[in-house]
Simulated scan of single mutants.
Amino acid sequence: MIGVEEIKKKALSKYTTFLESVVNNENIFPLIISGNKKPSKSTKEFDREIRELLSNSKEQKGYGFTIAYETRKSKILGTQSFPSKFSFESEIDYLKFLNKTKEVALFREIKKETFTEFSELKTWMLKYPKKIISNKENWDAILKVCRYFKKNPIPNLYVRELPIQVHTKFIERHKGIIKDLLDILIEDYVNFDASKFEERFNLKFSEPLIRFRVLDSKISEKVFSGISDLSIPVSQFRSLKLKIKRIIIVENKVNLYNILTLPNTENTIVIFGKGYSVSNLKNIEWFNDKEILYWGDIDAQGFEILSQVRSYYPQVQSVLMDTNTFTKFYENDLGTISLVKNELNLTKEEGLLYNRLKAENLRLEQEKIPHGYVINFFNNL
């Protein structure tokens, strides 16, 4: 037979529905819990379960569930009145049973205050009432943040510079719920393509740096006052629009240093891609008409990163990532097992080598290729 704990579990499963009814000013009572369950196998056990149900019922406690019975015959118990359903006749009965009275009172206060200022959040509150419950102790501070952004949708400040009377780390710790609300409240000003909170809501942030070397001394002198090795924020790098012809992207620092020893090379820059951080190079418009070369490790991950770069710029060509180079310099090193299953954006030859490297977990790191061989290769491009 169903017990008190199972009744509570089923009642809790309806809590979200109840909170939705509060948002909508609806009455969902009486709330019915089904009691259809096989009876106990002994009279003694049946009597014990009935006593437990009665002692926790509204009849005994003054609140909680009311028991409805149906009379039927059982082979073991004979003709008995079996509990058939349990109903919470009122909100008071339901909330006192679940010990949620104070929580719901606070939920109603939050709803009233929020609707008064931000009626456009009703649909969201109806859909995510449990998010409100999870953040109930912080709701006043959350509304302070909402008020500020509603008046200042383009702050252009760092998060901790915002003149909001909340803890300095409050926004950083509650970005998820604040993002949900601001997406609605300042919809016309949200950068929906940006996943980073600061970028999404027009805040300053510490950007990743792009390190690159200008191999053409004339461009270095003309644009950067003779400085050839630079690291600048992504947004500034995007705005450079350098008048060059060729971009070389290398995966790690060792090969960045290798290429730095190249003699003056016209209309060319080399960029340190930092492995998977190469994602920082996407959406750079002035890359679109440039020749782009990618040089990574000859292992599964190297080709996966190559595929990633090629998804940004289809014209990307790999260099020093071929079977001949691998065969010539491979030193029996093992790589990192790849779990990638999707098809990569590789040429036929690259794909064949990738499949072998992945299947056998092989690796030739860039730095294992002799410096002289590298310099000779790039000098003859």
Score class of each variant (00 low, 15 high):
33 I>A: 02
136 K>D: 06
28 I>E: 06
318 S>Q: 07
329 F>M: 08
272 F>V: 02
94 Y>V: 05
123 T>P: 01
172 E>L: 12
99 N>L: 06
250 V>I: 09
235 S>A: 11
276 Y>I: 13
157 L>Q: 15
216 D>L: 03
70 E>V: 08
40 S>A: 13
212 F>Q: 10
351 G>W: 02
228 S>G: 01
19 L>E: 05
70 E>D: 05
209 L>N: 10
186 I>Q: 01
60 Q>R: 15
334 L>W: 03
289 D>K: 12
329 F>G: 06
15 Y>W: 07
381 L>G: 05
327 T>S: 13
318 S>V: 07
96 K>N: 13
355 N>E: 15
230 L>H: 06
224 F>E: 06
284 I>H: 05
157 L>K: 15
167 H>K: 14
54 L>G: 02
261 T>P: 00
22 V>R: 06
270 V>Q: 04
246 R>Q: 13
192 F>G: 04
59 E>K: 13
85 K>E: 13
174 H>P: 04
365 E>W: 03
105 A>M: 06
120 E>R: 09
252 N>E: 06
183 D>W: 02
357 L>I: 07
290 K>Q: 08
245 K>W: 04
173 R>V: 01
60 Q>A: 14
80 Q>K: 15
350 E>S: 05
150 K>V: 15
147 R>H: 13
297 D>L: 06
257 Y>E: 15
284 I>D: 04
120 E>G: 01
251 E>D: 04
93 D>W: 04
206 S>H: 11
101 T>V: 13
360 E>N: 13
49 E>C: 05
255 N>D: 13
233 P>I: 04
61 K>F: 05
319 V>E: 10
225 S>H: 11
337 I>K: 15
212 F>H: 04
140 D>N: 12
323 T>A: 14
105 A>K: 14
88 F>Y: 08
113 E>L: 10
84 S>D: 10
28 I>G: 04
185 L>K: 07
227 I>E: 15
274 K>Y: 09
118 F>C: 11
